[in-house]
Computed example of a mutant assay.
Amino acid sequence: MNGKFIVVEGLEGAGKSSVIGLIVDALKNAGKSVEQTREPGGTPMAEAIRDCVKHDWDEQVSEETELLLMYAARVQLLTNRIYPALESGVWVVGDRHDLSSQAYQGGGRGVSPDTMSAISHIALKGFKPDLTIYLDVEPAIGLERARGRGELDRIEQSGIAFFERTRERYLALANNDDSIRIVDAMQPIKSVHNDIKTLINNYVVGV
């Protein structure tokens, strides 16, 4: 594949949207063709699954149901948009990917490592992003920012302990994978953006 897949990860309120916009602009300025995606979502079917995942159902949504829906949406996005784009030389910038499931469902929901590994293997067959940027923010700060955007969805209402477990898993995975870069998202936004610009410029030069 000639294109590169760059993913931005983080808890709610980490500032992913502004960082993604910055990355897209930087890549375009470097002469790259760029496509932007989000998870869950990014295709008509995957967007329908996103609505299903986010909806506050009047019934218990099991951890396994949530996990399988996430991977179903992910495979649809990979098949219909990400793989074709990369193969045609387009760089893809994603708002979340597999690391989110590993952190949210594996860490936050407590789905077993064996289950996580098996489903990831079936769905992704070893595929992973070329570069992942994890925006690290304390859960209390991130959720306060998220509330400022409006009403929280079903997952965002999962409670502070859930997000603390999710952050812990994010950091554990990021610290053991050379393709993941951690950026302190609790800095002033200007400092975060400067870190992102430096990281992306260095990455583009190095590939």
Rank of each mutant, 00 (worst) to 15 (best):
A185H: 10
S33Y: 11
K16S: 00
S179P: 00
E64I: 14
R74Q: 04
E164C: 06
L199R: 08
G15S: 04
H121F: 13
E151S: 14
R109S: 07
N202Y: 06
G42L: 08
H97Q: 10
H121W: 12
R81E: 05
Q105V: 07
I200V: 14
K190F: 15
L131Q: 03
D98R: 08
L22R: 05
A118H: 14
I133H: 01
G41Q: 04
V53Q: 01
T198G: 05
R165F: 11
E138S: 12
D25V: 02
D114G: 13
E168T: 11
G142F: 00
S191F: 11
V92H: 01
L131K: 02
L143F: 04
G42Y: 04
G94L: 06
F163K: 02
N194W: 12
M70T: 00
W91V: 00
L67V: 01
N80W: 00
V111W: 08
Y71T: 01
G107I: 02
A174I: 11
S179F: 09
P44K: 08
I155A: 07
Y203M: 13
K32Q: 13
A118S: 14
I20C: 05
I180E: 02
N2I: 08
G94S: 15
A46T: 13
L99T: 04
G107Y: 00
I122T: 15
R50E: 10
L78A: 02
V61A: 11
A85D: 14
S112I: 04
L143Y: 07
L77G: 00
G108M: 00
E63S: 15
N201F: 12
T65R: 13
A123N: 09
E35K: 10
L78E: 01
T43G: 03
A118F: 14
Q60P: 12
D114E: 15
N194Y: 12
L199E: 12
A46G: 10
V192Y: 10
G106T: 02
W57L: 11
L143K: 01
